[in-house]
Design a protein around this nucleic acid. Structure first.
Lengths: 350, 350
DNA sequence: TTGTAAGCGTTATCAC
DNA sequence: GTGATAACGCTTACAA
């Protein structure tokens, strides 16, 4: 592999200066005076030689890898259909690039190898970490806190000292349920997005309960089912619900993906949405307005979430210590056709 | 940040040996003789100190970063709803981990900064690259070839010397169209997944044409429309088709995602699928069996694709030069309800 | 304003 | 079998 091994020495030689000067110029070190002519000479030499500093050498000397780690804690099955991830990724990479950094991505199974991200840190492979889907039973997390490693959680860990960015799950669910209540529904089923050990799932369920309470509608446990992220589980739980003999006229499904499955189940039971049952989801995935019927749901600001998380991380990397440790983003009800509110045609520009 | 800065020297001290020995033991250097007792001592010392080698130092000295780059060439809009990506990611990370390596991910806009991945290579930040969505007008690619940088394309670049792994797009489309032809359809519209400058789109269109030809059905250009990856474009193109006055009883939509939009358009025109129009997609996204109607489509082996690509890359990294440069994976027709072939109920285990 | 020289924490090449 | 010692290519005091 005949790589053109251009080093800073080569640049220095060509520009007729020392390596130091090259480094100073190229890194644009502030508070240093370099004559404009040498600066130009160096820049030009680097340009001509197509010089790119060796990342490893740079990292070793500067103690900064210029890489941030995105660690996703999920089971493999969850990944494959996780669109929320692609949206996050999009936002993340843009911000990271803007800061001249790179993104290392890692997926770790919650069951095993929780240590993985500590390894990344200890090897100094990453300067900071964005952790998505943190679990409270993850002991390794403390190690991050102990050494004060720049960390931002995507999601929440109630009571922890971590910086975190999340969506207001409780309000989102409250909003969804309230929409159904406002339409006159009183028997409203709920299918969670995940088991309650996930804070997001728990919060969504309690948002739903709160909404019922506020409206003076009694909470009826048999009307609640627990899905597990994917449409399949939504399909099963809705079937289960329909076959349980419980009586309900609407359902709040705490994840669009799960809702897709639930809708399929409903259809198979010969029920029409929204005529026979109103349904509202949560996420507003890019396809949710194309399915049948176009899904009324709660929009989560995925890209903004990612942007804010990276911005926060960069501040940490620069040594700042922002006051606010937890950032909670608002959500928004998107009314489409699955509750019967808006039956007249599909709105492509919504 | 009080990081426990454990170096190999510390391990050496504790084990009462030299750094060299530590390196030899920890890296399990083959063909070297080390007494079992010292080996144990070193291992134990490392364990006790929680020693993790510094990635930068290791990379600098060994000239290997142990990181492979996944570079996605797409526009930002394409990313957000790209489920195929999540599936790929899943497969990729598993393989990469198995090899004890890491994954650096990068998205680059085809319009700009095509040089980005060269930068990664020149900075020696990555040992090899998996390039998804290569474009033939990308000059930078040659630089990879020139220096013989370990590269595997996810997708194809006809006539190039790159190693590549792809799905048999032509056969997939041929298969889809043939299914419709077998059901008796003769006027079959086609909405591509993307503009024809994308080889995949081009291949899919020509698979469709071929199928028609084989069946003795004339190819009718007005029946073809070009979408751009997302449901939105599918919606528009199907509208366009329906309003063009062209006569057709079936449609082959070369991407499930695009098909979702096309179905929405059809629905709005008061047409039922499959009763009024048969439709077959291509991709078999995880939701395609939950939408209404469950979509007949062609399954693409996303995870296997990723697995094979990484395996191939690892062979390149080890200096092998596999004979076969282009690997093409087969696809499979998945019959569901959108062509009317199987109207009796939904099959969750399909 | 620029150059000298000492790290950074490994791996790799030799001797012993 | 094991240990000095020299790279690896850069940053950064400290001098000049």
């Amino acid at each position: 592999m005949a790589v053109n091994r251009v080093t800073s020495q080569d640049v220095a030689d060509r520009a007729g200066v020392s390596r130091t000067t090259v480094s100073l110029v190229l890194n644009n070190v502030p508070g240093i005076q370099i004559s404009d002519t040498t600066r130009q000479r160096v820049l030009q030499a680097a340009e001509e030689l197509n010089y790119v500093p060796d990342a490893a050498a740079q990292a070793l000397a500067s103690r900064q890898s210029q890489v941030i780690g995105l660690v996703l804690i999920r089971t493999p099955d969850q990944i494959a259909s996780d669109i929320f991830l692609t949206q996050t990724l999009d936002g993340l990479i843009k911000s990271v690039h803007k800061a001249g950094m790179r993104l290392l991505i890692d997926i770790i199974d919650p069951e095993h190898q929780e240590e993985t991200y500590l390894h990344l840190m200890r090897a100094k492979r990453i300067d900071g970490i964005i952790l998505s889907g943190p679990r409270s039973n993850d002991e390794s997390l403390n190690a991050l806190l102990d050494v004060d490693f720049p960390t931002v959680l995507l999601g929440q860990l109630p009571g922890s000292q971590f910086y975190s960015v999340d969506v207001d799950n409780r309000a989102a669910a409250h909003n969804a349920a309230t929409h159904l209540l406002n339409l006159g529904h009183r028997r409203i089923a709920c299918i969670t997005n995940a088991p309650l050990s996930y804070t997001a799932a728990n919060d969504r369920l309690s948002g739903y309960r709160q909404a019922l309470e506020t409206a003076g509608v009694p909470f009826d446990p048999p009307l609640v089912r627990f899905a597990e992220f994917d449409p399949e589980s939504g399909y099963e739980q809705m079937n289960n619900l329909l076959e349980s003999g419980s009586d309900f006229s609407a359902a709040f499904v705490a994840s669009d993906l799960v809702a897709y499955g639930a809708i399929a189940a409903t259809r198979e039971h010969g029920l029409r949405i929204p005529e026979d049952m109103a349904l509202v989801g949560l996420d507003d995935l890019p396809f949710s307005r194309f399915i049948s019927p176009p899904l009324t749901t709660i929009r989560l600001p995925a890209i903004e979430l990612a942007r804010i998380a990276t911005d926060l991380l960069f501040r940490l990397l620069q040594g700042e210590q922002p006051e606010q440790k937890q950032i909670i983003l608002g959500t928004e009800l998107v009314v489409r056709d699955s509750c019967g509110a808006k039956l007249h045609g599909y709105a492509p520009h919504q």
